[in-house]
Simulated assay, not measured.
Amino acid sequence: MAATTKRVPLPAILLANDLLDGDVIFAAAGDAGALIWTRDPAPALVAADEAAAERLEAFAAAELRGNKVVDAYLVDVSIESGHPVPRHFRERFKTLGPSNRPDLGKQAGEGIASAPKG
């Protein structure tokens, strides 16, 4: 009997850590449809269907084998104001930067939105 792999709910983005500096990076569409890594979460490629999620997973596997990234995984997101926002605190926190220095990291610029206040 084949084991089934449970995938996060869609839509999702691919998040990883750069192997050299540890910064959080996101899979995005590059030239001619090739996938690339970006530190800017805004252009993160959002997988809305199984085929897109499988493409992101294949990219992650190749990048892991090539020792370019570590800890690559799909993160389920909601789309808010046209941008992907991780649904879980851990991933939302990783997309922003250090909590003790709001003037540093992605939260200092145009990064993924933080959790709504209220």
Results as ranks from 00 to 15, higher is better:
residue 9 P to W: 04
residue 115 A to H: 10
residue 61 A to N: 13
residue 57 E to V: 01
residue 113 A to D: 01
residue 55 R to C: 05
residue 29 A to I: 10
residue 104 L to P: 05
residue 45 L to M: 12
residue 118 G to V: 07
residue 114 S to I: 12
residue 93 F to G: 00
residue 118 G to W: 08
residue 60 A to C: 10
residue 104 L to K: 15
residue 95 T to Q: 04
residue 52 A to Q: 15
residue 57 E to A: 11
residue 80 E to I: 10
residue 81 S to K: 13
residue 39 R to Q: 03
residue 97 G to V: 09
residue 82 G to W: 06
residue 73 Y to T: 11
residue 37 W to T: 04
residue 51 A to M: 06
residue 24 V to Q: 01
residue 31 D to G: 09
residue 56 L to Q: 11
residue 74 L to T: 03
residue 51 A to T: 15
residue 92 R to C: 09
residue 72 A to T: 05
residue 87 R to E: 06
residue 35 L to W: 06
residue 67 N to M: 14
residue 111 G to P: 01
residue 6 K to M: 11
residue 99 S to Y: 04
residue 117 K to T: 03
residue 44 A to C: 04
residue 6 K to G: 12
residue 60 A to E: 01
residue 73 Y to E: 14
residue 94 K to A: 13
residue 92 R to Q: 12
residue 101 R to G: 01
residue 81 S to V: 10
residue 36 I to C: 08
residue 104 L to Y: 09
residue 11 P to G: 11
residue 27 A to H: 05
residue 96 L to S: 07
residue 52 A to G: 15
residue 48 A to G: 15
residue 103 D to K: 07
residue 108 A to Y: 02
residue 107 Q to L: 02
residue 13 I to V: 15
residue 59 F to S: 05
residue 51 A to P: 09
residue 15 L to A: 02
residue 7 R to I: 10
residue 96 L to W: 03
residue 30 G to Q: 07
residue 32 A to T: 08
residue 75 V to S: 03
residue 113 A to F: 03
residue 82 G to P: 00
residue 72 A to S: 04
residue 95 T to Y: 02
residue 72 A to Q: 01
residue 92 R to L: 14
residue 78 S to G: 14
